[in-house]
Design a binder for these strands. Sequence first.
DNA 1: TAGTGGTCTAGACCACACT
DNA 2: GTGTGGTCTAGACCACTAA
Lengths: 266, 266
Amino acid sequence: MAKPTQPVRGRPKQSSSVPLTGTSELDRDSDVPLYFQLAAALKAMLEVDEWEAGARFASERELEEQFNVSRAVIRPALELLVGDGAIVRVKGSGAFVAPPRREVRVGGLVGLWSEQHGDRTVTVLSARKRRPDRTVSHFLQIEDRRTPVAHVHAVVDIGKPSVILVDSFSSVALVPWLLPTARALESAEKPPRPSGLGLTRATVSIEHTFFGEWGSSQVGASAGDPALMGRFVQFARARGAREECPVEFARLIYRADGAQLAFELS
Amino acid sequence: MAKPTQPVRGRPKQSSSVPLTGTSELDRDSDVPLYFQLAAALKAMLEVDEWEAGARFASERELEEQFNVSRAVIRPALELLVGDGAIVRVKGSGAFVAPPRREVRVGGLVGLWSEQHGDRTVTVLSARKRRPDRTVSHFLQIEDRRTPVAHVHAVVDIGKPSVILVDSFSSVALVPWLLPTARALESAEKPPRPSGLGLTRATVSIEHTFFGEWGSSQVGASAGDPALMGRFVQFARARGAREECPVEFARLIYRADGAQLAFELS
DNA sequence: TAGTGGTCTAGACCACACT
DNA sequence: GTGTGGTCTAGACCACTAA
C-alpha cells in the first residue's frame, strides 16, 4: 500500500504523524526486546524534534509497516510511552503527543476547604455519616467503632482533562463543618465558613496500582490504567488544645500518566 | 491433560498453586475485558484465603486451561497483579505471592549520612566532581555553571531484595564532607564525620516511569518495568547563616511494585 | 529435560470516531 | 464507510530454572 502524499478519500491519513521521519531500524539480534528498542527510538524522535502537545502520532498499523514488526511489538512499546507520559491514546481516534505533566499537590478536603483554593473545582459525589471500618478507625485513632465519621466521596478537578478521586474520612467532632460544606456543594448552595482549626502536619504514602471499573469511569480512564494511590492523614490541634490529633484520613487516586505529585517535607 | 494429584516425573507440577480452588467463570458477554475480570478474580482469591508470601502461583499454561482463555488474556491480567504488588514473576521459574509492600522513606544522601541510619547499606557506584547541567544548576541555584558540584551515584539497600538508585548532586562548598564520605565507602575505609548542617525542609515530586536498560540491571528489574521516579531537593541553613539554601538535588528511582513511598509534610 | 515466563507472529472481530 | 485503538485467538521460539 503506497503512502499518499495528498489526503485520500474517506478519512485522510493525517500526514503529520510524528515518527515518520528518520531511519527506522531495529536490531533483531540484540538481547534488548524489540518493543523496548522501539519505545526508545520513538521517545528519542519525540525529544529531538520537539512536537507540540496534541500533534498526531503514527497509528499502530503505520508503525507495523514502518518497523516491520507485528502489533504485539507495537503495543507494549506504546504502553511504555503512555506510562512515561509521552503520548496519549484515544480509542477510535488515534495516538497523540501528550502535554507535559501537571504538578499536583497532594492533600485532603480539610486542607483544601480550610484555605482559599478557588481554582479547584470539587464535585461531591456523596457525603454522609458512616461507621468507620478498621483502616479508617486506625488512622483517625477512634477507639469506639460505633462513633460515626464523615465520609465524603469527591472528584477534584485539577485543570483541563485531569481529575483526582478523593475518599475522605474525618472526625465529626473535630471538623463539624466539613459535612455541611460537602452537602452545600452537592446541592450548589453556599457552603458555611470552616471554623478555625490549627492544621499541623500530615503524612503521605504513595504507591502504584491500577484503576478499577468504577474509579476509571470517574476520571475518564479505563479499567486497568496505571494509577497512583496516596494515603493522606491530616493532623491538627483544636483551639486551645495541647496535643495534636488526626482529623482526616483520605485515599486519593491519580492517573499515573500526566500527574506529578509534589510535596514539601519538614 | 489430566491433573496429577501426585508429583510427576521430571519437574513436579508443585501442586500448591494458588488459584486452583473455587469456581472459574468469566463473563464473555460483559463489557469488562476478560483480562480485567481475570485479574479481579485472581486478586479476590488471593485476598480471601490469605496465602503466605512466596507461595507458588498457578502457571500461565495452567490458567489458560482453567479459564479457557489464551495467553493474551492471562498476561495482561498478571501484569495488573504485578503492578498492584500482589504477585512476583520469576523468569524460568514461575509466579509467586508477593510479600507486603515495604514502606520506603524518600530522601537524599545528605540526610541519610547526617543522621544515624546504620541499617541502610549504601553502595557507591561513582563519586566525583562535575560541571552541573541545566537541571542540576537550577535546583541547586548555582549561577556560574563552571562551579563543580559533587555527583554521587549510589545504590541504597532498603531491606531484602529491594534497592533504590540514587543520583545525588550537592554543593561542594556547603557539604564538603559528602564526597569524602562517598569515596571512603567506595574503598571500604572509615568515612569522616559529617559537619553540622541545619537541615530545614525538603521538596519532593513523584512520577511514574519505567526502567531503562541500565537502571533495571542495577536494581534487579528488567528494562520496561514500572518505576517511580522521585526528585528530591534538600534545603539547609549553614552554621550561623540566616537564609536557607538548597544543598542537594537527588533523582531517586524505585521499583513501582513492592515499594510504598512515605513522607511527612509540614 | 520438562516446565516456566518473555517475546513475537499473523491473523481476527469489535466499538468507536471521524468524514 | 474507513481507520482507529482495544481485545483476543492460536500458535511459535527462546533463555532460563529446577529437579
